[in-house]
């Protein structure tokens, strides 16, 4: 199981307090969406879960153990950009994790070990819908395909926790809806806990089992430096979603996402569109 316990965590950069007194328990196999205004420290919080940054005060426990101070294979990540390696093909990108784990010095696999790794990688590539693109480089893929690749690359490590930093923020709504469906399926089929930072409320409520809002309770200019953001809302989705379980309450809600109304980037829906 992969329960995350965050206890009284503070993050300060010098005098600037970014996060104050964050306490949160993320159940195993939960899907938590972190929302909040820009610059409120959601991404900082995610980087702390990743091990890229460290809490100034407080502790973070994964399965009861303090979090290692470095990024490790037990926590996978997908960023909004730069998540895949431009110099490797789709297959090479997915294979990389296998090679790094199995071959300490050469970081390359040969012979039967390589063939079985390729087999596994191909399966995962097919699962995220990239079959046929194995020999392409990321620069030849669309934004949505790159993010699918980034997911496959992270999932081959079978991480306990998957961390997503606005992974679908740069995608157009149609592509985003498709990748939401994929994300939901992957979450249902694997054993991992997911923590996702997003700006998109619709995305948060479509995917998550729980939505956590970060906000600065005191946000006047003179207060900004000495008061950080904290958790102001913690909403559990009802009726509850559970990984791997079919929802009897609203099967259509947890089914594929259908777009309603005008798209976000539709010029006619913008305030300046009525010229």
């Amino acid at each position: 199981m992969s329960e995350l316990i965050i206890e009284n965590v503070w993050k300060e950069y010098g005098d600037q307090i970014v996060l104050e007194n964050i306490s949160l328990t993320v159940a195993s196999r939960a899907f938590v969406a972190l929302v909040g205004p820009s610059g409120c420290g959601k991404s900082t919080f995610l980087r702390m879960l990743l091990g890229q940054e460290h809490a100034t005060r407080g502790t973070i426990l994964l399965e009861g153990e303090p979090l290692p101070a470095e990024p490790r294979p037990d926590r996978g990540v997908v960023f909004q950009r730069y998540s895949v390696f431009p110099h490797l093909t789709v297959l090479g990108n997915v294979l990389l994790g296998k090679e790094l784990i199995a071959s300490k010095y050469k970081a390359k696999l040969f012979g039967p070990a390589r063939r079985s790794a390729i087999e596994e990688a191909r399966q995962l590539i097919a699962e995220v819908g990239l079959s046929g693109a194995e020999t392409k480089y990321p620069a030849q893929l669309s934004g949505g395909m790159q993010q699918r690749l980034a997911l496959a690359q992270a999932l081959i490590m079978k991480p306990k926790v998957l961390l997503l930093d606005e992974p679908f923020g740069a995608l157009d709504p149609g592509t985003r809806a498709e990748i939401h469906t994929l994300m939901k399926r992957l979450w249902n089929e694997t054993q991992m806990t997911v923590v996702m930072v997003t700006h998109d409320m619709r995305e948060a409520f479509t995917l998550a089992t729980r939505v956590v809002a970060f906000e600065r309770p005191r946000d006047r200019p003179e207060e900004k430096e000495r008061y950080g953001a904290t958790i102001t809302r913690d909403i559990s989705i009802w009726p509850p979603r559970r990984a791997g379980e079919f929802s009897h309450f609203s099967p259509d809600r947890d089914g594929p996402v259908v777009l309603q109304g005008p798209r976000r980037d539709d010029p006619s829906s913008s305030p300046s569109g009525d010229r």
Binding site: Q52, R72, F85, L96, L100, I101, K104, K106, A150, P159
Partner: peptide, 27 residues
Amino acid sequence: LPREQIVKAETLGGSSWQIALRVVLPQ
């Protein structure tokens, strides 16, 4: 090189040497 790439390689289990060999050197 974007920090994200290095972090990503770390989450894939790469050591400093492996990241130098497979991520930084080829780029």
